[in-house]
Amino acid sequence: MIKKQSLRVAYGEALVELGHKNDRLVVLDADLAHATMTNIFATEFPDRFFNFGIAEANMICAAAGFAHAGLLPFFSTFALFGTGRGYEMIRNSISYIQLNVKFGLSHSGLSVGEDGGSHQSFEDISLMRGLPGMTIFVPCDPYETRKAVFAAAQIDGPVYIRVGRPIVDTVTTPETPFIPGKANVMREGGDVCIMATGLMISYALAAAEQLTARNINAAVVNFHTIKPLDAECVLNMAGSCGRVVTVEEHSVIGGLGSAVAEVMAGNTGAKLRRIGIQDKFGKSGKPEDLFNEYGLNSENIVNQCTELISRI
């Protein structure tokens, strides 16, 4: 059992495991292999690893080229440079024809910390979610990261895996199912449903625990797949709890909160609160300090749930 690991290490190790099973796998990076941890793959399979230097646009189109030639390319860089600088390459060269390219992008969200706002991506899910046919996985721990890599390889089409930088506790087990497009109910509860994704899952579970002291039974659902979103689960939980709070390490514009709101609109009378980055850029600081300042902590989840319940 792994207790603690960084998702990026889990990502690098999963690529190695996949590489042994699938000899069509090739991995591409843009001078960040020591940060995205594709260097683990590079060491094991030097002939199947391609470093393109600090040239993301070229790397992404090269990945498209590999897919056109029948190989299975996974490319990596930071989430901001991959989905941001590479947006139009992903859109036209990959997504437009549903090309079989996967990208695991690390250093997503606020947890990048000290590097600051120029490196913290809060818009990557939003950018990728707007692309027809794109699958988006946001794993919450090392086990889910591994499963996301294997699930991505099974899908015929583009897949974005959002990988975080920090070392985190595991909250799932090797046996926890990971079915693309199917959310996992991690905790039952009837008063409010906390719908979370990625690193926010552990905070959501802690908040649900704290809410019991206030006699509030909170359900917690893990949306490891943002697209396609499990709409059935959203509506079932909204129906049974009547109140929904979404939590994500991403802008509330275009991420999980938006996706849930789109499903709920016109289909349920349940109330919704969205926790996430409130239309702001990031800044330098220790990840934990930033999480507190931006309201990405269990205290804020507890407060938002309580407030939502007290509203008539």
């Binding site: 901001l80 440079f81 600088r85 000290e114 590097d115 600051g116 706002g117 120029s118 490196h119 800044k283 330098s284 600081g285 220790k286 300090d289 930033l290 300042e293």
Partner: peptide
């Protein structure tokens, strides 16, 4: 690089006197 410092991890022309252009990408 500390929270609320004007000295960001990458140059920020909106925060630091003397920095003309924000860079990092």
């Amino acid at each position: 690089r500390q929270i609320d410092s004007h000295l960001q991890g990458h140059p920020d022309s909106s925060k630091t006197p003397g920095v003309d252009v924000n860079t990092g990408s």
